[in-house]
Amino acid sequence: MTLLNAIMLAGPMEQFEIMQIIPFHVGNLDLSFTNSSLWMVIGVAAISLFMFMATRRLSLVPGRTQSAGESFYIFIADMLRGVAGSEGMKFFPYIFTLFMFIFASNLLGLWPSIPGTPAKWHTFTPTSHLIVTFALGMVTFTLVVVYGFYKNGLGFLKLFVPSGVPILMLPLITIIEIVSFLSRPISLGIRLFANMLAGHLILKIFATFVASLLVAGPWAVLSILPFMGNVAVLLLELLIAFLQAYVFAILSCIYINDAIHPSH
C-alpha cells in the first residue's frame, strides 16, 4: 500500500526533476553532480562495458556479445556511408558515439526505479531534458559549420544560395534558407526531448490509473486495463528509444553531408 500511495502522490512531472547528488558551486555557477549527470555516467559506463565485452576476445566467428557489437558498428557505418558517402566515414566516431549515447540514455531511462529509494536515486532519462538534447544538436551543428567552412571555405555559403532563383527573389530565399539552416539544432533537440517527455508522461499517468483503481474497492478489477495499456506503451517506448536515437544520428549524417557537399 505504501508503494501505491507513493505512485499516486508523485505527480507525472516529478520524474523529470533535477536533484543534486554532490553539490558543487563555483561562484554563481551550479556545477553540481545531479541525477541527470549520474544517468549520463551510467549510460557511458554501460556502453563502454558493452563495447569492451564485445571486443575483448575477437574471433573470426563472433560470439554473442561480439556480434551484437559488430551489428551496431555495421548499422551505423552503413547508414553514414549511405548518406554521406565514404568521405563521411571520418565522422564515424562522432556519429557512433552520438547514437550509442542517446540510445543508452533513452533505454536506461525505461528501467524501473528501485521502490523505496530516495527520489534522487530514481531512474532518470537525461534525454528528457531539452537542454541536453539541444546541446547534442548544437554539437552536430557546430561540427557542420566548422567543417563546412574548413573544407569549402566561403563556398560553404553556397548552401544558402540555391541556383536558378530569379535575382529579385534571392534575398528573401537566402534569408529563408538561413532560418531553415538555423532551425536544425532546435528541431533535433525538440524532437528527441518531446518524444522522451511524452513517453514517460504517458507511462506515469497510466501507472497512476492502475494505482488509483486498485484502491477503488470492486473497481479494482478494471485496473488490468491501464496495466495492459502500460505494457503496450512500454513496448512502444522501447521502439521509440531506438528510433529517436536513429533519427538523431541519421539527421546528423544528412547535415554532415551538407558540410561535405554544400550545394542544393
Binding site: 532560418v179 531553415s180 538555423l182 532551425s183 536544425r184 524532437r191 528510433l243 533519427v247
Partner: peptide, 17 residues
C-alpha cells in the same frame, strides 16, 4: 511514427528560431 515526429518538429522549429 518517426516520419510524423520528423515533419512536425521540422515545421515547428523554424518559426521558433
Amino acid at each position: 511514427l518517426g516520419k510524423g515526429w520528423r515533419l512536425a518538429t521540422e515545421l515547428v522549429a523554424a518559426p521558433m528560431v
